[in-house]
């Protein structure tokens, strides 16, 4: 069965490894490239925990074989931090609002809402809920996550 050399740009760094065609992108990121920030949840495209940004758009990394992402640009939750390793305004707002409990869904939630705020810096509650519609959280009831995104949007707008 076919094995492939796969080269990705992960959070601005070109990274490379070998994998069987059947290895999913999330397994490749975690097990081959050591980028363990992205979580594996359901492994069949239901929970959204494994969301990453590919070429500027949020996608589920369990619903893509790593070989299909060869040559593409990936941003994981590790790539959201500021230049000196500080939390991004969105990550900070998650912290402030207690927008997580067990933390399992958090990388996916951050990716989904990070890309939302890039496209729509001032989303209303319905738009935020739509953006996280593909991401399951079993702890928070989603309310604090929505509030965190609202706070982050407000802070970024006030700062600019």
């Amino acid at each position: 069965m076919s094995e492939h050399k796969i080269t990705l740009t992960v959070n601005g760094r070109e990274m490379s490894g070998h994998a069987e065609a059947r290895l999913t992108l999330v397994d490749f990121l975690r097990d081959v490239l050591g980028q363990t920030g992205t979580h594996i949840g359901c492994e069949h495209g239901v929970c959204g925990a494994c969301s990453v940004v590919m070429d500027g758009k949020p996608v589920r990394s369990c619903l893509m074989f790593a070989v299909m992402a060869d040559g593409h640009e990936i941003t994981t939750v590790e790539g959201l931090e500021g230049p000196n390793g500080e939390l991004s305004p969105l990550q900070d707002a998650f912290w402030e609002n207690h927008a997580m409990q067990c933390g399992y869904c958090t990388p996916g939630m951050l990716i989904a809402t990070h890309t939302l705020l890039q496209e729509n810096p001032d989303p209303d509650e319905a738009e935020i809920r739509e953006a996280i519609g593909g991401n399951l959280c079993r702890c928070t009831g989603y309310q604090q996550i929505v509030e965190a995104v609202q706070m982050a949007a407000k802070k970024v707008q006030e700062a600019s």
Binding site: M1, A21, R22, C42, E43, V67
Partner: peptide, 11 residues
């Protein structure tokens, strides 16, 4: 929850 082996070609 891992796929069985297969061959892959990009066209």
């Amino acid at each position: 929850m891992k796929a069985a082996n297969f061959d892959y070609v990009r066209v």
